[in-house]
Amino acid sequence: MKRRISEYIFIGLTTAATVIVAGCLIAILAAVAIKGLPALKWSMITQSPTGGYYLGGGGGIANAIVGSLYLGLGATALALVISLPTCLYLRVYLKKGRCASWIRLSLDVLWGVPSIVFGAFGFTIMVLLGLRASLLAGIITVALFELPIMIRAMDEVLTMVPSELEEAAYALGATRFETGARVVLRQALPGLVTGILLAFGRGIGDAASVLFTAGFTDNIPCSLLEPAATLPLAIFFHLGTPFEEVHQRAYASALILTILVLLASTLARVFATRFSKHTWR
């Protein structure tokens, strides 16, 4: 009897813990929505800040939305150019050797590096290259930050590609590159898109890496060398002012950012499950 009671208590505890954890997500989303929705106006999305904006004047955060999208797209593209060949090399050329496992350890460790450290390192690079805080510097830093995230997601997908597929291509006389590019990548395509979207979501959401590198401006950047505003920093700076109206806008901006990020991760999920008509097993 006592044993049965302790069983029930344990089930109760684990269930309660799960409810609390899931509840935290809902609490966060609810708080951001409740505070953000009333403050969200069309002009927030379509206009850049006008004079006196940070004192409660007119305008919006179009500069930060566009800046974040530029930065996210640029950084994701740059990260993709490096991570895709890296993952392909690991999968098709190195396979499961000792060398590959050392490389994977190093990449796993890179994955754990905090974004503020990427920010500091990005700043160092920026100074080294003689750049100012700009869209370009931000893109480079965020790309480095996204790199391990993207590599890990892609590597996981590529290792799941059955080796029989590779062999089938080799048996037709394909080279390693042809096998990798035309068969392995094709098989893994939906998963690769998922990885790209995940990295994009993390990239546009991160503030610490762009804090010193992308700068901040009220204008929409017209060239790579101009500074760019970003949503996370816009939220941060809005909250730094003493005015309640401006705080309201921070909540609205947080809502916009959350929606963007959730959109990316939902799309990622959809890609992972659908769009796999050629994939077997």
């Binding site: 597929l165 062999e167 291509a169 048996a171 394909a174 068969v183 094709r186 050629h278 994939t279």
Partner: peptide, 21 residues
């Protein structure tokens, strides 16, 4: 080796269709 494998084709135990049409 690639050319050799073109001349000597191989069909495996389990059918392995490539991920395409």
């Amino acid at each position: 080796v690639m050319d050799l494998r073109k001349r000597v084709g191989m069909i495996c135990q389990k059918p392995v269709p490539l991920p395409m049409s």
